[in-house]
Design a binder for these strands. Structure first.
Lengths: 191, 191
DNA sequence: TCTTGGGTTGACTACTTAGTCATTTTATAT
DNA sequence: ATATAAAATGACTAAGTAGTCAACCCAAGA
């Protein structure tokens, strides 16, 4: 029975992802989510005791996936610039290929429905990113800016480029990604 | 009696601004807004026929204020870099000094509650920004990137720095603004 | 003083919401 | 086949929701 259980839970999370990004948290009723997922209202509350638990579960899943994809093959790159470029491509490609999840993270990263506990647990998965920036500062590859400023600028810039690719009509996606990286690297690198 | 009319309308917009940023659009009831504004439920619907009209009115007001502040004293600067720097300071200072409005714009700029009509009318106020970027591309000050990419990166980076200043604990605000500009200018300038 | 009329009020309605729970269905073990 | 318990159901409830409207208030002019 384990398989079906996971099926329904996954269906609920997918339905919630779609509807939350389209209509917001309060704009989406639990009845709507369960209908979209093809289950009964009561079933939703078997898996997620409250609506808030559902959105926190979803945030946890999506952010976890992003952190795993973000760090993929980064450490095997030869130069520091190559490491950052790899991470940049991972971020932007994930965003453009997972539009729903990308929008969801953007809408809910600073929303009051995500509890501070969820936020903290998720944050722990991004330590490697902060470490990479610290490494760049210590070996003089990056300019003398606070590490928090660098991580924010890098991450938010990747979001800007994803938005640009998704909404600025058809164009060469790889060129847009590479141009975005040139801008960010040009801004952060030690001169 | 005109004065009182404006008082109530302003009170409603201010209450809505505060509550929308705290609890979202659907999370904030019209009863809650009117109570916060100190008026009766019915009064809200005298000024804004529907709840959607209220949020569109608010978006229009706030974005209008931002566009006016953004362009202030920009054209009187001598060099192109000084013009961009002036605009950067205007943006970041407005954001840090008007936290509610800053958060509101961030939350609702891509939300479905803002009608395409409101969006279009607001967009017209930002033509001068696009013109300034085009000027920079034509006279070779900026790198060869699509103008839409440049405007997005510039604007979103200013939002990133405002966030950084608001949430990364106490630090020298002017230093943070200047560091942010160094990063952005370093990334966008022609090399 | 009395009338006029726009601004204001809040009880009200028809509808939607998150969450419950007695009942039914389903999968497995014997 | 039968027994067992976990999983699924959807009608239900109590608490909101956006928006309405008949009644009320009050400043200004006659």
């Amino acid at each position: 029975m384990k398989k079906q259980v996971e099926d329904k839970k996954t269906a609920l999370l997918e339905a919630a992802l779609k509807l939350f990004t389209e209509r917001g948290f309060h704009g989406t009723s639990t009845a709507h989510i369960s209908k979209e997922a093809g289950v009964a209202t009561g079933t939703l509350f078997n898996y997620f005791p409250t609506k808030e638990d559902l959105i926190n579960g979803l945030y946890f899943e999506v952010k976890g996936e992003l952190s795993r994809k973000m760090g993929k093959d980064v450490q095997t790159q030869k130069t520091y610039e190559e490491k950052l470029r790899k991470m940049w491509y991972n971020l932007v490609e994930w965003g453009t290929e997972n539009q729903d999840k990308f929008l969801f993270v953007g809408q809910f990263c600073s929303s009051p429905y995500i509890t501070s506990h969820t936020r903290e647990v998720v944050m722990e998965e991004y330590v490697f990113f902060h470490d990479l920036v610290t490494e760049g500062l210590e070996n003089g590859e990056l300019g003398d800016y606070p590490s928090e400023m660098i991580t924010s600028m890098f991450y938010q810039s990747s979001r800007t480029i994803v938005d640009y690719i998704l909404y600025s009509g058809p164009q060469d996606k790889n060129e847009a990604i590479e141009n975005g990286f040139k801008i960010v690297w040009g801004g952060l690198v030690k001169k």
